[in-house]
Design a protein around this nucleic acid. Structure first.
Lengths: 233, 233
DNA sequence: GAGTGGTCTAGACCACTCC
DNA sequence: GAGTGGTCTAGACCACTCC
């Protein structure tokens, strides 16, 4: 139920309830959820509040509205950029695999504007004993923002988890350029393929909630990785 | 001014007015636009209508809201997928260039589920007498939805403009897979380069407002094209 | 304290879908 | 005709920014 005295807006509370109902399977894929009028009675709020909650879930790609019919559960493939860890985790979970990370290199380097941790990781998914490597990530993290971050074990925890939990900084959006490259000796060896095949590289910056740059990153996608985008026109 | 008797919703009319004011420079980058209260008086509509129009422009990455301060013009680099025409036009305009399109092939073909127009276009930008080709687009457009669309001249008008103006269908979002490929003889000739270099290809579907697939598309980016993405984490 | 956007109420009339 | 979501009105109170 909704709590009108809490500081969390009613539409956010409602949004969470509906989202949970979708995820736990109370409302199933392709099903029409209760109408706005019905929810008005159930949750004792006005239609404006219901509609705001639903609109956000439509944006989250969980619901789709059908004029005259109702609102349907529709788990569309999201902006599925498997380059980041949250996407990574989802991707693995869908396939019933475990996300894994191997640290190839970790060092402190000086760039023109300060000290950075340079971290190179091979990332992929594991199913039973078989590991499939998907991306080769090189990150540059400013020590000024994250003092001592080089002490952590990045094969156990994701970089973003550590930023969240230990520094209270939340990576929020990324600006990436996407380039095609030819694989080299290193990518052949790491991803385990032969011949000259083209790969995709994404490079750019990751920003926190206030716009600060929290990471410079370069991701090379191996031949097994998929790269999908959903975009507005 | 707004026309309350037109079938176009007031918030869409208002949205177009504000967007035009931004594009033509009446409201400049970094400037605060008139407040919601002020617009209520100016356009004689309620705040709900104003807010809906503004919310959509925030989604379009033209405005940003600052609680307590106002709503600012903020032409963020969009999910800048220069693969589509609107992005294309913006891209060209920024660089003071003219978007150009050359139709390489146009034919009617039958696929398993009906007849399609297959359209191959080379697209790029022109500055004075020099043309820079950026992408090679192959589109499949269902004739069931767009009867007679093959009669138009696609070197003069964009495909999406024709869909809008003549069929009242608005391409709204795209689902794309992104793959690296090796260029071949054809891409070398068209984009004018030599040697074996990797390119980016995006392929997928474009959907209308109601989710119908309005186009299957494959875009090959030439060596001159940039591909940028802004994504949430 | 004045002005801004954020949330919410309580209605109204409409276009659309389904029967 | 009954039910659905789409648009819109006319208010209220709030948190936030700026002075």
């Amino acid at each position: 139920m909704l709590n009108k005295h809490e500081s969390v807006p009613l539409y956010v509370q409602l949004q969470n309830i509906i989202r949970d109902d979708i995820i736990c399977g109370k409302y199933k894929e392709g099903e029409i959820i209760p109408s706005e009028t019905e929810m008005m009675k159930t949750y004792d709020v006005t239609r404006t509040t219901i509609r705001k909650a639903i609109a956000n879930l439509v944006d989250e790609a969980l619901l789709i509205k059908l004029h005259g019919k109702g609102t349907m559960v529709c788990l569309r493939e999201m902006k599925q950029n498997i380059w980041n860890f949250s996407g990574f985790t989802d991707y693995a979970r869908k396939k019933n695999e475990i996300p894994v990370s191997q640290v190839l290199n970790k060092e402190i380097i000086s760039l023109n504007n300060g000290q950075f941790m340079k971290l190179i990781r091979l990332r992929g998914t594991r199913r039973e004993t078989h590991t499939k490597w998907l991306t080769l990530d090189t990150s540059y993290v400013p020590l000024a923002l994250f003092p001592g971050i080089d002490q952590y074990d990045f094969s156990e925890q994701s970089l973003y988890n550590i930023m969240n939990q230990n520094y209270n900084i939340y990576p929020q959006h990324a600006t990436l350029g996407i380039h095609p490259i030819l694989g080299d000796k290193r990518t052949k060896q790491l991803f385990g393929y032969e011949g000259d095949i083209p790969l995709i590289m994404a490079e750019g910056s990751v920003h926190g909630e206030d716009g600060t740059e929290v990471e410079k990153v370069e991701v090379i996608y191996g031949p097994n990785a998929e790269f999908k985008v959903v975009t507005h026109i």
